[in-house]
Simulated scan of single mutants.
Amino acid sequence: MLDTPGLIALESRLGAANYRPLDVVLTEGKGVWLTDIEGNRYLDCLSAYSAVNQGHCHPKILASMVEQAQKLTLTSRAFRNDQLGRFYEELAALTNSQKVLPMNSGAEAVETAVKAVRKWGYEVKGVPEGQAEIIVCAGNFHGRTLGVVSFSTDPDARGGFGPFVPGFVVVPFGDADALAAAVTPNTVAVLAEPIQGEAGVILPPAGYFARVREICTANRVTLILDEIQTGLGRTGKLLAEEHEGIVADVTLVGKALGGGFYPVSAVLATSDVLGVLQPGQHGSTFGGNPLACAVARAALRVIVEEGLVERSAELGAYFLDGLRAIRSNRVAEVRGRGLMLAVELHADAGPARPVVEALRGEGILAKETHGQTIRLSPPLVIERAEIDWALERLARVLH
């Protein structure tokens, strides 16, 4: 049997080097805890980038997955199945959506939204063919496909992958005046994350998205909010858009929609936008498959029945206060909303990578981003005592 160095060497020898994971080999997960092959336990403070909001291997989601896997897993959308309509009904009712289009990964949901709003622009708004523009924000992260990296401002995401897809205009995140100035008659959409996760848990100024909503409405522009990380309870609301009392025309959800068991994403939109898609114009072999729908239905029930949105709001505020109480000359800022938190180190305090490696030694698994930022986003099932346990170790490492 291979040990930790042996398994790491195996990955390095046969796998593409497109990730730089921490050198821990995990074998089991339950709730907020992970166990490596040597039996060491760790508090998960990443939640697979919000994909396991409900905790690892939640028994209710597992039971639904096993039950459905014994009956029917895949038909493709060439036929109907008895889970899809129920999934639509429950997700639409929970999010007050008019139409649902299921996909698999978050990036697929983003690509789907881009296609749909472009088609809407041509067929409904009357933008000249081939001239549609979508406004996006600097520092964005919406996935890794060629279409998505075409409007990324991250040189690592873009470098060497051109030529890129045209039709995107980049403005600073949080600057509503710059966004308003970028709108033209050919603008069909604004695409943004309510909180920029990969950029380092960057929150916009208060009132920003309310103003963006006003700009979009005044100019007949669709507002697309990428809630793949922020949605389904992560920020202390079911959808992060609720913090400013707005409703997007298109909302993208994923990650936690699969409860950590299965890749499930969805485009939630008005009938006006998704109504432009006709048979044969878009689809996915696995999107909306019965196994995915059964898992997603169970994942949503857990969020509601276990009060995970409310837990995120309460315990997120508690965790944030605890982080801000840590006295450390290395910490420049602590920020976040709900259980989507970040610790920013001073530039002269060194990079964040050695800090997350030290946290691993203390039994906490977190991840650095953009050099100086440590992301802290545990599953929403975390308990107050577990937060206290984490704060004690974070204080020790950040001293």
Rank of each mutant, 00 (worst) to 15 (best):
L22R: 13
R158A: 15
L34M: 15
L223N: 08
E108T: 03
L232H: 05
R337G: 00
R396L: 09
E193P: 07
R353F: 10
G143L: 04
T285M: 05
V171F: 11
L359T: 00
D23I: 14
D82L: 10
A116G: 04
D226A: 14
S150I: 06
A210G: 15
V247Y: 04
V356P: 00
W120Q: 06
P204M: 05
L341W: 03
G130V: 12
L14D: 09
L308H: 05
A342D: 01
A342K: 01
I382Q: 00
R118P: 10
G121P: 12
G361D: 14
P172T: 13
G6M: 08
L232C: 13
V253P: 00
V343M: 09
E198F: 08
K99S: 13
S265G: 01
I37K: 04
G236N: 08
L277N: 00
I387D: 01
D44L: 07
V52K: 08
S64Y: 08
T27G: 08
F161E: 03
A109W: 02
T230A: 11
N40C: 11
E193V: 05
H282K: 04
R297N: 08
R301V: 12
E368V: 07
R86F: 11
A298T: 03
A358H: 06
E11P: 06
V148S: 02
I382V: 07
A157W: 14
Q83T: 13
G236V: 10
K255D: 04
L268N: 00
P378K: 01
I303C: 05
V127P: 09
G231N: 02
N40H: 12
A157T: 11
L14E: 09
N140S: 12
E67T: 09
V136K: 01
